[in-house]
Write a protein that binds this DNA or RNA. Structure first.
Lengths: 203, 203, 203, 203
DNA sequence: AATGAATGAGTCTTCATTCAT
DNA sequence: GATGAATGAAGACTCATTCAT
C-alpha cells in the first residue's frame, strides 16, 4: 500500500518467496502431514487462495523448500580433492562439511526422510540422491583401491552405500534425535570408521 | 463358522487374532496412513465396530502387529558367542540372522520406520530399540578392544551406533527399496566393513 | 458361587435390584445422556446383556429408579390437615416435608427435569404430576377461600400452579444449583410468600 | 443469487446470517440434541463444511441464536418506573412485557432450558441471567419495603428469586406445555400473587 | 437367567481445492 | 495476482442392542 505498487511480476515473485519462507517455517514447526495449506498461507501473510497461484499442492511447496537446502547438503564430497594428498584428511574434511550442513538443516533433513516415506515422488528423489552419492564415493573408493590405499576385496559401490548410510544415519541420530555425542567426537569416530573400513593406512 | 464359537472369551481371542492378521495384511498393502479401520475390519471378516472391541486406535493395532515381528528382528546379536572363537565368524553369523529376519519382514520393518517418523510413541519405541542394540554391541566391541582384537581408539558406543546404522540402512536399501545387491554379496560386504572398521585382524 | 444357588426367580430379582441401584449411581454420576448401558451393567456387577433381561431400554431403567423416589417427593401436601387448625402451620409443615425430600434426592430430581425435557414419556409423567399437585392444592385453596381465609379473587387452579412452581423452582435453585440460602430461611420465605400470596390472615 | 455477491467479507456475513436463521428453524423443529449440523447447513442453503467456517460447534451456533432472543426476554423490569406511581400497575406492565416476549419465543425459551440442563456453559449462562434478574427485582422490593409498601419481614433477594421463578415457571407451563390458561387470566393471577406476596396495599 | 463379544448405523469434523469478485 | 469464503468427500469412532453359548 505505502510502497509504490510494483509490477505484477515483481509482486508475484515476492509472494512466492514469502510462501516458500512461510512454508519452511510451518513444515519445520508442524511436520509435513500436520502442515495445512491455510496455515502456510497465513504464516506467509497471504490469502489461502494465493497459495495455489504459485504451487499446485503441498508437495510442490515442499519441493521448493527442499530445493533451497538441497545443494548444500550433498553427501561427503570425497572427490573434491583438497590440495592435500592425505586421503584421511580429505575424508575428514568431507565429513565435516556434510555434518555441518546437516546440522544447519536438521529439521528439514528429518522432514525429507519423513516425506520420502510417504510420497512416491520424494521417495524417488531421495533414492536418486542416494545413488548419486554412492556412485560418486564409489569412484573415490575405486581410485584408492587402484592406488593400493584401500582394501581391494571390497565392492566399491556396495561399500559406498554402506558407509554413506552409516554417516547419514549417525547425523540423523545426533542432530535430529538428539543423541548426546559431541560434534568433534562424532566427526572423529566417523572418519576413523571410514578409514578403517577401507583399510586406509594410517597417515 | 464351522467350529462352534465356544465361550465368549474364546470368541474374543479368535477375533483379536483375525484382526491382527488382517491389520498386518492391510498395513503391508496400504501403508499405515492409508490403512482405514473399516478396511482392516473387512479384511479380518468382522464388523467395523468390532475393531474397537479389541483396539483403541489404529496405532494400537499397529503396535500389536509390530509385537509379532519384534523379537525376531533384533539387531546383530554379537554377544551370542557361537561355539567358535573366531570373531569374524560371529559377526557374520549375527549379520546373516539379522538380514534374514529383515528380509522376511521387510514391509513391516519399512512401515515401522514410517510410523516412527509420524507417531511420537513409535518414535520412542524405535529409539529405545536403537539404544538397546547399541549398548549391546558396544559391550562386544569393548570386549574385543580389551582382548587387543579391536582398534582401541574407537569409542565403543558411538562405534556401535554407527555400525548398526550402517547395517540397518543397507538392509532397508536392499530389501525395501530393491537395491540390486545379492544377499551373499551384501553379507560379505557388511561383515568385511564391520571387521575392517574395528580393525579386527584377519582370520 | 459360595452361597448356595438360589432359585432362578430369586437370582433374577437380585440382579434387577442390583441394576436399579447401579443405574441410580451411574445416572447421578453421569447424567442421563452420558450414562451408558455398559457402564450401568458394570457398576451393577453384571454383564451388559443382562441389562436387557430386566429392562427394555435406558428409559425403562430410569423409570425404575424414579419410581423409588417418586412417592416421597410429592409436592406440598396441604390437604393432610395436621391436628392443628392454623393454616400457616400446615403450609409450613408441608413445605418442610417437600424441601427435605427434595434435598435428599436432589440429583435425581434434577435428572428427572432433564429427562422430561428430552423424552416425551417422561415429559408427560412430569406434567401429570404437576397437574395432580395443582389440583390437590387448588382444593385446599378453595377451602380456605370458602372459610374466608384466602383472597377470593384468585383463581384456585392457576394460583396453585403458580405457587407450586415457585416452590419447586426454589428447591431446584438451592439444592441443585447450590444457591446459598439456608434451609430455615428458605422455608420461612416460601411459607411467608404462600401465606401472603393467598392473603391468609397472620396467625 | 440476484444480488452479485460483492466482497468475500460481505458474502461471509450473509452466509452467517443464513446459518443463524437456519439453525433457529432446525433447533425449533428438532430440538437441540436431534439437530444435526448437516441439517442446519442444508436448511441454510450452504454446504456442510460452511457451517464450520462460522461456528466451532453446534453449541456456538445455538449461542448465536440465543443471543438474538436474549435481550427481549429479560424478566420483569420492575425498575423501569413507568410514569405512574402505582406499584401494581408497574408490576403488571412488567409482567405483560415478559409474558409477551416469552410467548413470542416460546420454543427457544424451552430449548434454552433444555440445553442448560445438558451443557455446562449454557447452565452458567442461564444461572447468570437468573441472578441478574433476582438482584434487579430485589432492589425494587427493597425500595418498596423502605417506602412501607411491602412486607418488611421478607428477605428481598430470596423473595425475588422465588417470585421470578414462579413467573418463569408459569410462562413455561402455559406457553411451552400448553396449559390452558388465558393470557389475561395468567397476567392477572401473576400480578395479584406478586402484589399479595409482597403485601402491597391494594390500589 | 447370565454372559460379553459382535454388530453397524449414524454424525461430526477436517481441509485441500475451487472460484467469483 | 490476490482474496478468503464455500465446497463436500472421506473416515474415525460410539454405543444401544442382539444373540450364540
Amino acid at each position: 500500500m505505502s510502497t509504490a505498487a510494483s509490477t505484477p511480476r515483481v509482486r508475484g515473485a515476492r509472494t512466492r518467496e514469502a510462501l516458500v519462507a512461510g512454508a519452511r517455517r510451518v513444515f519445520e514447526r508442524d511436520g509435513f502431514l500436520e502442515a495445512r495449506i491455510a496455515d502456510i498461507a497465513a504464516e506467509s501473510g497471504v490469502a489461502t487462495g494465493s497459495f495455489y497461484t504459485h504451487f499446485d499442492s503441498k508437495e510442490a511447496a515442499f519441493a521448493a523448500v527442499i530445493d533451497e537446502v538441497h545443494e548444500e547438503t550433498l553427501h561427503p564430497r570425497l572427490e573434491v580433492t583438497h590440495s592435500t594428498d592425505d586421503p584421511i584428511a580429505v575424508i575428514e574434511a568431507a565429513h565435516r562439511d556434510y555434518l555441518l550442513a546437516y546440522r544447519r538443516n536438521a529439521k528439514l533433513m528429518a522432514l525429507l526422510e519423513q516425506v520420502a516415506l510417504i510420497d512416491e515422488d520424494f521417495r524417488r528423489l531421495r533414492l536418486d540422491r542416494v545413488h548419486l552419492m554412492a556412485r560418486r564415493n564409489a569412484k573415490t573408493i575405486r581410485r584408492l583401491q587402484d592406488k593400493g590405499l584401500a582394501d581391494p576385496g571390497l565392492d566399491p559401490l556396495s561399500t559406498a552405500h554402506a558407509l554413506n548410510g552409516m554417516v547419514s544415519r549417525m547425523a540423523n541420530l545426533v542432530f535430529v534425535h538428539g543423541e548426546r555425542i559431541g560434534f568433534d567426537s562424532l566427526l572423529a569416530t566417523l572418519t576413523a570408521l571410514w578409514a578403517n573400513a577401507l583399510r586406509i593406512p594410517a597417515r
